[in-house]
């Protein structure tokens, strides 16, 4: 070939630079991923993500606290009155609007993760202005459906995945 070389044209050297850089970057990312992913929950942690609880001994108005994924889960057997209040308050102007029926599988049983959605403290039962829970850390009030009513928490108490295995057993997770 006799034509002159235009300086702006890509050369074989440019190709080599780019190829090398791409290979280098891919290699770095390949090595980086295991180093990052090892920080995620390991197999032994993930294996513990289901727990069963015996609820036969909980009286009406009583509750049980079980550990699931290292966090407490509140299982509360609500009284008729409490259910009525929770449903009546569906109409209130809630910070995080959810109907009581959306939050339970069986009206009598409220199952929520007992971790304040603000910064992760454990709310105290039967305290606060709304008959449910009160978080002592930064003052969030939850009602008897576990819904945030007052304070800095942005959302309602989380409802974990659960099912009634039989009359006496709930499986969480």
């Amino acid at each position: 070939m006799t034509d002159t070389i235009d300086k702006n044209d890509p050369t074989r050297r440019d190709f080599l630079y780019i190829t090398t850089a791409v290979f280098g970057a891919t290699g770095a990312a390949t090595v980086a991923w295991p180093l990052i992913h090892q920080l995620n929950p390991d197999a032994s942690v993930s294996a513990l993500s289901s727990v069963e609880a015996d609820i036969s001994s909980i009286p009406e108005g009583g509750s049980l606290k079980v550990a699931w994924r290292g966090k407490p889960v509140f299982i509360r057997r609500r009284t008729k009155e409490e259910i009525n209040i929770a449903e009546k308050e569906d109409a209130e102007n809630l910070p995080h609007p959810e109907k009581d029926e959306e939050r339970v599988k069986n009206k009598e049983w409220l199952v929520v993760v007992g971790v304040c959605t603000h910064l992760g403290c454990i709310p105290i039962a039967d305290k606060g202005d709304f008959g449910g829970w009160f978080c002592p850390c930064h003052g969030s009030h939850y009602d008897i459906s576990g819904r945030i009513r007052k304070g800095p928490a942005p959302t309602n108490l989380e409802v974990p995945p659960y099912e009634f295995v039989n009359e006496n057993i709930i499986r969480i997770g």
Binding site: I36, L39, V45, K71, V115
Partner: peptide, 17 residues
């Protein structure tokens, strides 16, 4: 958060790292 803690709450993996 899960990546940071190495679990779903503060636990042994968190303490180790």
């Amino acid at each position: 958060l899960t990546l940071l803690l190495g679990g779903f709450s503060v636990d042994n993996p968190t303490l180790n790292r």
